[in-house]
Nucleic acid binder design. Structure first.
Length: 574
RNA sequence: UGGGGAGUCGCCAAGUGGUAAGGCAGCGGCCUUUGGAGCCGCCAUUCGUAGGUUCGAUCCCUACCUCCCCAGCCA
């Protein structure tokens, strides 16, 4: 039912906004194309580190990397930045590939920074021979001390002027595993007094006797990001290397290595990373939520991960449209969650099949309806899409309606059912509340109504207007379903806004998950995992992978806009 | 404090010398057998602040203020 992009096909069936609005990155590319730079070629890359799952912030980068290349007929590689074996795992590379494809993109080349370890090693030897790199025996602590501070220049390492021969010998022995982790590093010889800290003889290689997810035990020295990233771009002939703002400081080093090596001049551009209200985006924090069991996993529907959003029922189209609606600038901003939700609703409204489900059931007995009669009511599957057709829903004497749709004492502007009042049952009849049945505590447990036989939907005499239409299910035919109602994972717009001594965990929303047992219409009997529906008047829901033929499980993707809730809220605040 | 980046409506964001686009949110109204969707309208005399240049400045100049990034052998 849902038109998800298939791996191998090009994106993008957008629902609205253009894929790439004008922005400074796009302008830079147009400029380069105009001047004939790189022979009019555009090539980008998406370079995730496989140390966690992709999140909505990555989606923005992916849409930019792939979208921009696609717009100008270029290529985009997926390259795993796997230079730190202590944090990277195969599980993550697989999850990342799945998520990129789910989002609707297919890479041209699939690479790993580790593919370039040998080349990087040879280039390091060249830099040593050129007198531009040296083996340093300082410990990590000493290296920090020698680096100086933001305002004071650093001091040269006592090992800075070793002979080329000694450096060559030592570096080879580092590679051969003769030295312990942390005992030595290979450093670029640049300028310990540079105001740009990344120029103060940056570490190029560290010793790590660690098994690597791809190279196994072939290496015990691993290149640092700054020594690997630009060269990897260069090797792949990337023309426009797009990354986030915090790498601005690294751009000079990126260029320095490329210049020293005299290799293809890839160019780095920085844009603002996406931040969203009510969530955290750092992989470190997301990892912690997972490891401490505060969520059910990386794909918990409350997580801002692509796998979490997928499970929640968000669509790739909605995420892409959201990303396209975002600005690309150098401002550090925080986008409101409502903007993402708008695009989720927009896409689901067009594509989700309507269905009736009562989340918090209240029994209704139609006192003047024949005891054993069952009528088949015809319902429209999607008013936004005539081709979706219609279906039949059983109607009978005993029904369930939403508890919220009945008030014994109706507040002002309340149009739904209350004693003596009428409402229409969607695709059914107009009913009138005659009396209520209460339990020992005085709670209304049953509502007795009469129905108007002339008001059957679609009938010749069905045009009588009533203030409201509510949804319902036939008690005898309804199916039970577990429904997981999600709210934001954090209670504050900015989860990091905490008291002294606390951290973001303190802002976890205790009500981010509420589990209900709902009554749903029988057509949902064989609903397949992943299928998305609109429960009329309630919101969008999708079938969770936990769902089985015997026990339906739905996740609430997002509620519908609720004007009544707003009116009532306002009345209470007044 | 040194270096780098940024400050335009509640949020995101165009515009970059000629008198403030758009989206989200919000607020009115229309329509409606989803209080959904849709449609219409409203929503910055003002562009961090203070000076200056100019016939004219958000766009140029000067100073100041605020925020973000950099002192991992993380990326």
């Amino acid at each position: 039912m849902n038109s998800e992009a298939t791996p191998g096909t090009a994106p993008v069936e957008s629902t609205g906004e253009p894929t790439t609005k004008s922005n400074f990155l796009r302008d830079a590319i147009i400029q380069d194309l105009a001047t004939g730079k790189h022979g009019g070629r555009v090539q980008t890359r998406f370079p995730p580190e496989p140390n966690g799952y992709l999140h909505i912030g990555h989606a923005k980068a992916i849409c930019l990397d792939f979208g921009l290349a696609d717009e100008f007929g270029g290529k985009t590689n997926l390259r795993f930045d796997d230079t730190n074996p202590t944090k990277e795992e195969t599980e993550y590379v697989e999850a990342i590939m799945e998520d990129v494809r789910w989002l609707g993109f297919e890479w041209d080349g699939l690479f790993y920074a580790s593919d370039y370890f040998q080349q990087l090693y040879e280039w390091a030897i060249k830099l040593i021979k050129d007198g531009k790199a040296y083996v340093c025996d300082l410990t990590a602590d000493q290296t920090r001390e020698y680096r100086g501070t933001l305002t004071e220049p650093g001091k040269d390492s006592p090992y800075r002027n070793r002979s080329i021969a000694e450096n060559l010998d030592l570096f080879e022995r580092m590679k051969n595993g003769e030295f312990a982790d942390g005992s030595r590093t290979l450093r670029a010889k640049i300028d310990m007094a540079s105001p740009n800290l990344s120029f103060r003889d940056p570490v190029m290689y560290r010793i790590l006797h660690q098994h690597h997810h791809r190279t196994g035990d072939a290496w015990c020295i691993y290149p640092m990001y700054d020594y690997a990233h630009g060269q990897s771009d260069s090797i792949e002939q990337v023309t426009h290397s797009i990354c986030t703002l915090e790498f601005d400081n690294n751009r000079h080093l990126y260029n320095w290595f490329i210049e020293q090596l005299g290799i293809f001049p890839s160019q780095q551009f920085e844009f603002d990373r996406l931040s969203l209200t009510y969530t955290v985006m750092s992989k470190r924090k997301l990892l912690r939520l997972v490891q401490e069991g505060l969520v059910s996993g990386w794909n918990d529907p409350r997580m801002p991960t692509l796998s979490g959003m997928r499970r929640r029922g968000y669509t790739p189209e909605a995420i892409r449209d959201f990303c396209a609606s975002l600005g690309v600038s150098k401002t550090n901003g925080i986008t409101q969650l409502q903007q993402l939700e708008y695009y989720v609703r927009q896409h689901l409204n067009k594509h989700a099949q309507r269905v009736m489900a009562v989340l918090k059931p209240l029994k209704v007995v139609l006192t003047n309806y024949p005891d054993d009669l069952v009528e088949e009511m015809e319902a429209v599957n999607n008013p936004e899409d005539a081709s979706a057709g219609t279906r039949k829903i059983p109607f009978s004497k005993v029904l369930y309606i939403e508890q919220d749709d009945f008030r014994e004492v109706p507040p002002p502007k309340y149009y739904r059912l209350s004693p003596g009042k009428e409402v229409r049952l969607r695709y059914g009849y107009i009913i009138k509340c005659e009396s209520v049945v209460k339990d020992a505590d005085g709670n209304v447990v049953e509502v007795h109504c009469t129905y108007d036989p002339d008001s059957r939907s679609g009938g010749a005499t069905s045009n009588r207007k009533v203030k409201a239409t509510i949804h319902w299910v036939s008690a005898a035919h309804a199916l039970d379903a577990e429904v997981r109602m999600y709210d934001t994972l954090f209670a504050k717009e900015n989860p990091d806004d905490v008291e002294e001594g606390q951290d973001f965990i303190a802002n976890l929303n205790p009500n981010s998950l509420e589990v209900l047992t709902a009554k749903v219409e029988p057509s949902l009997k064989d609903a397949a995992a992943g299928a998305r529906y609109q429960f009329e008047r309630m919101g969008y829901f999708c079938v969770d992978p936990d769902s089985t033929p015997g026990k339906l499980v739905f996740n609430r993707t997002i509620g519908l806009k609720d004007t009544w809730a707003k009116i009532e809220q306002r009345a209470q605040n007044a």
